[in-house]
């Protein structure tokens, strides 16, 4: 499954970079993630719970960041296993500085599913992915506004 999209955030690029590198914040804003434990500087153990159409699963696995080019881009590798199947995703994330305290995030990648989620949920998977992405960015927007509120 292709994962791609663009979202514009109202904060400076370096600020965004710091935010999305913060595991505590990520746990807070990523839908479904209940635990994110740092393994080393660039990888985490993640536990999440996601409902995809008719199936629901508790996923466990790894989240790692590679090819970091601060503050412009990085690759996100997700590998999550569950009783209802596994998800492996590779996503390239690009942060473009638009000036004027605006940053554009472009993400582009692929996710592969196996197991029950591959054969029962496929029709709705991209819908679920879009909805989760939207929730993530909405939460990130809120965090930025909250942070600005605190700063201001």
């Amino acid at each position: 499954m292709k994962l791609e999209g663009i979202h514009t955030l109202k904060a400076e690029r370096r600020v965004i970079w710091v935010m999305i590198m913060d595991p505590d914040l990520l746990v807070k804003i990523t839908p479904g993630i209940s635990e994110l434990v740092k393994k080393d500087e660039f990888s985490y153990e993640a536990i999440s719970e996601v409902k995809i159409g008719p199936v629901k699963g508790r996923f466990k696995g790894e989240l790692s960041l590679t090819e970091l080019n601060e503050p412009e881009s990085f690759n996100l590798k997700i590998s999550q296993n569950s009783k209802i199947g596994n998800v492996d995703a590779k996503i390239h994330i690009q942060l473009n500085d638009l000036g004027n305290e605006q940053t554009e995030i472009i993400f582009d990648g692929d996710a592969q599913m196996s197991g029950v989620i591959a054969r029962t949920g496929q029709r709705v998977v991209s819908g679920v992915a879009n909805s989760l992405t939207k929730q993530f960015f909405d939460a990130l927007d809120k965090e930025i506004e909250f942070m600005k509120g605190v700063d201001g």
Binding site: G53, P54, Q112, M113, S114, A118, R119, T120, Q122, R123
Partner: peptide
């Protein structure tokens, strides 16, 4: 089957 070889309609819902 998708390109990775997953049967993507393996239930009576699909």
């Amino acid at each position: 089957y998708d390109e990775s070889g997953q049967l993507i309609n393996g239930s009576y819902m699909d």
